[in-house]
């Protein structure tokens, strides 16, 4: 994989993870009514960070696929599941049970093999 592809891939994963965390921050705001919850979500800063991240991700993924085969892109892009779970663990204290850790490990191994990082 070229240095440019590696850079775009790393940026894409970072932006994707930040976006998901921002949406999570926005989504956990509680309110008495569903309409009120949506209003407070849409007026919160994190949701707009999330949206900006997904716009960036859209362009980054297009750029990535312009220099990588789709089959390889989709495989090494799977690492986002691992980064999102790690971020969820750090920021939201989400639990990582054995099954999740095993799943994340297998995905890391798979990405390393597919991307030739091994």
């Amino acid at each position: 994989m070229s240095k440019l592809a590696l850079l775009i891939w790393a940026l894409n994963i970072t932006v994707d993870t930040v976006g998901h965390m921002a949406f999570k921050y926005a989504a956990i705001v509680d309110h008495k009514t569903e309409l009120g919850r949506w209003k407070s979500m849409l007026s919160s800063f994190p949701i707009w960070i999330g949206m900006a991240c997904f716009v960036c991700e859209f362009v980054l993924w297009l750029a990535f696929l312009s220099i990588m085969p789709l089959s390889l892109g989709i495989l090494i892009g799977s690492i986002n599941m691992v980064t999102i779970m790690f971020a969820g663990r750090i920021l939201f204290k989400e639990r990582l049970d054995r099954m999740r850790v095993l799943g994340m490990t297998l995905i890391c191994v798979g990405v390393a093999l597919a991307g030739g990082f091994s």
């Binding site: 089959s71 390889l72 495989l75 799977s78 599941m81 099954m99 999740r100 095993l102 799943g103 994340m104 490990t105 297998l106 995905i107 191994v109 798979g110 990405v111 390393a112 093999l113 597919a114 991307g115 030739g116 091994s118």
Partner: peptide, 17 residues
């Protein structure tokens, strides 16, 4: 072949998740 093995690992990882 290595990428196919990688793909299988990823799919198995998703199943575990």
């Amino acid at each position: 072949a290595l990428q196919v093995v990688g793909a299988l690992c990823i799919m198995l990882g998703i199943v575990f998740l």
